[in-house]
Design a protein around this nucleic acid. Sequence first.
DNA 1: CGAGAACTTGCAGATACTGCAAGAATGCGG
DNA 2: CCGCATTCTTGCAGTATCTGCAAGTTCTCG
Lengths: 207, 207
Amino acid sequence: MSSTDPAPGLRERNRVRRMRRVERAALELALDRGVDHVTVDMICEASDISPRTYFNYFGSKEGALLGMGNAPHAQADVDTFVAARGHIVEDLLHMVARSFLASDPDREVYVMRRRLFAKEPELQGLQLARIAGRRQAMTRIVEERLAVERPELTEVERGDEAQLVVAVVTGAFPIAGRVWLELEDPGAEIDAAISEVMARVRRIASP
Amino acid sequence: MSSTDPAPGLRERNRVRRMRRVERAALELALDRGVDHVTVDMICEASDISPRTYFNYFGSKEGALLGMGNAPHAQADVDTFVAARGHIVEDLLHMVARSFLASDPDREVYVMRRRLFAKEPELQGLQLARIAGRRQAMTRIVEERLAVERPELTEVERGDEAQLVVAVVTGAFPIAGRVWLELEDPGAEIDAAISEVMARVRRIASP
DNA sequence: CGAGAACTTGCAGATACTGCAAGAATGCGG
DNA sequence: CCGCATTCTTGCAGTATCTGCAAGTTCTCG
C-alpha cells in the first residue's frame, strides 16, 4: 500500500489521473469564485465526471479542496519513530514529513491550496477536522513509544503527554511546510526546515 | 457583551434557557442513538422549537452538540494577557480558562459532551473546526503581545511563534479541563490544573 | 399603553449526500 | 482473442442540511 507498488495497473493510473484533474478543477473554481459559490455539480462539469463518482472519490464537497487525509503511515516509518530516541517532537515531525513526501505531493496543487487557505480561513478548520483521524492514530503511536521510553509514567500521564506532543507537531508541521516551500530545492531539504522549526519550538517552552 | 451584564432581560433569559434545553435534548438523543441517527427535526421535536430557530441558534446540526464556539474573549482578559510577562503559554491558558468559566459552563452538560466525544471521535474533528475561528483570534492576540515583548522578531517569525503557542495551548487546554473535572471543587481550582499541565508542557520541549 | 425593535416561525427551494442496481471498463485464465 | 469475474462509474430516487424571505409574535422602552 506504499508508494512503491511495482505495477500500478491501468485502473489505478486512470484513477489517479482523474483525481488530480478533479482536484485542479475544484481548486481553480474555488480560487476564482469562492468556495461557497462553487457547487459539486460545477466541479463535476468542469472535470467531466459524474457527481456520484465525485463523492465516491472525495466523500464531501471540500474533499477535493483539502486533499489526502486518509492514507495511514507506512509501518516502516512508524517502527523507525517508535525505536528512535531523539527529541520526540523532532522524530515525529520527521515521520510526518516522510509520509507527506511519500504521497508525491504536487507542488503546484500545494501552492494553490495554500493560496486558497489564505483566502478562506474557514477551510483551515475543515482541514483540522479532516486530519483528526490522523491525530488519533499519531497519538496511539506516540503512546507506544512512550511506553518503552518512559515506563515511569502512568497510563493517563502517557496519554496526556502523547496528546501534547501531537498538538505541537500538528502545529509545527504547517510551518515547516511553508519553510520547505520557500526553499527552491525539493527533496531532502525538508530536514532543514524541520530543524529550523524545532529551534522555535524549543524557544517557546524554555523560559 | 461580557458575562457581567447587569440586567440580562427577559428576552436574553428565555434565549439562554431555550438553548440549554435544546443542547440537553440533542446530547441525550445523540448519546442514545448515535449522532448520525439523529436528525435536526428530532432534536427540535424533543425540545419544542422550530427547525428554523434551531439553525438561527446553532448554525449547524452539530452546533448544539459542540457548544459555545463563537463568543469572543472579553477585552479585559485580552489586555491582561497582552500586558502580562509570565510564561506566554501559561498566561494564554489562563486567558482561555477565564473565558471558559465566564460562559458559566454547565458541569453536567460538559460531562455529557465528554461522554459523547469518547463515543464518537469524529466529533472531536468537528470541534477543532468549530474553534478554528477562535484559534485565529488567539493567534492575533499572541502576535500583539509578541510585538511588544520580543521586538527583535521579524513579522514572519512572530506569526510562526504565535501559531506554535496557540497550537500548544489548544492541545493543553482539554487536558487541563479534564484535570479540572476530576477535582470536586469548582471555581478557582482551575489554576491548579493549569499549573499541573504546564509542568508537562515544559517537560516535553526541554530535553 | 403604543411604537418600534428583535425574535420565532413557516414555507419554498437549493445543495449536499447516500443506497441501489444497471451498465461499462478492466483484469485474468484459458 | 474470448469469456468470466471483479471492480468501478453512473443515473436515479430519495433524504437531510441549510438559507432567504416575509409574516406573525414577543419583548423593550419611552
